[in-house]
Nucleic acid binder design. Sequence first.
DNA 1: ACCCTGAGTCTACTTATTAGACTCAGGTTA
DNA 2: TAACCTGAGTCTAATAAGTAGACTCAGGGT
Lengths: 163, 163
Amino acid sequence: MTNETHDATNKLHAPVPLAECALARAIRTIGDEWTLLILREALCGVERFDAMRDDLGIPRSVLSQRLKQLTSEGLLQRKPYSLPGQRPRDGYVLTERGRALIPALAALREWAEIHLPGGPSRLRLQDSDGQKVTTRLIKEDGSPVDDVSAIVAVAHPPNTDPA
Amino acid sequence: MTNETHDATNKLHAPVPLAECALARAIRTIGDEWTLLILREALCGVERFDAMRDDLGIPRSVLSQRLKQLTSEGLLQRKPYSLPGQRPRDGYVLTERGRALIPALAALREWAEIHLPGGPSRLRLQDSDGQKVTTRLIKEDGSPVDDVSAIVAVAHPPNTDPA
DNA sequence: ACCCTGAGTCTACTTATTAGACTCAGGTTA
DNA sequence: TAACCTGAGTCTAATAAGTAGACTCAGGGT
């Protein structure tokens, strides 16, 4: 049945349906412009509602809705703070789950710096010792991936009926 | 003027405005649910309009609009193909700029697999030799970042007037 | 000449986003 | 104690985007 008459053009479908794909789940969770920009604010240490609003120009209602969503998904958590001479309020900070997104955000930043127009980026991610952090793509054996052009996505437990 | 009376709670604003931030540019370019899901399809080797539509359940008009956008931004390019006994048509494949997003997508996938509910991911990224590829966060000196909790975002040419 | 298929466009409907006024809580000041 | 101030929201009406599904269009096959 392996008829090779046509010239093996392109796949009809993705190897894995959306429901079984972690990447798709990630996209459904954080694949929204405002959501990502809010996570950037949190990564920058901005905790307060109005500060985020000022930085992003986001409507209050949308910011409120997204913060609720991110909190309920465990990416942000409320953190009480006090300014001198004011009543205590709640800000938002990244949870561990939220901070675990840093590699993805770092990779995005690196991509944009190299592959999008707009000049150099002024935002820098650094560790506690002041060293800049970057991402690297590696193989199972630890060797770096130099050329991304050969990478393919496949189903992991291979499909038994590729019909 | 460096008055330390309050307990150094939180930053009022991000260290870098959106216009000078590559991460923000990346988010504005690909920070959209359908856009990201389309890039996943392209990464999976799905080239054809109706195949993407079937996989994603995306409305035709939205798919058409996003493909135009991604093409004009240079992340996808049209690629003619022929099925036997049918007229030639155009599909879409990732450009070099589009493939350069693979590290970011890989990092996202890894995040979701570890930090989101939903069971193991069946989508696997591998190199031409069949080895799985993953991302790693490293410092300038090449040492791996083990703990993400100390990473901060700062302005790179430091702000001269942090007033 | 007619049919078939895949890539779109078009239309009417529903939902999300937006700007801006308004509310609410609680500490400060008089 | 009462009026006041500030920051975090909610509410409302107008606009924009997303959606489902019918329709169009191109070109090879029959």
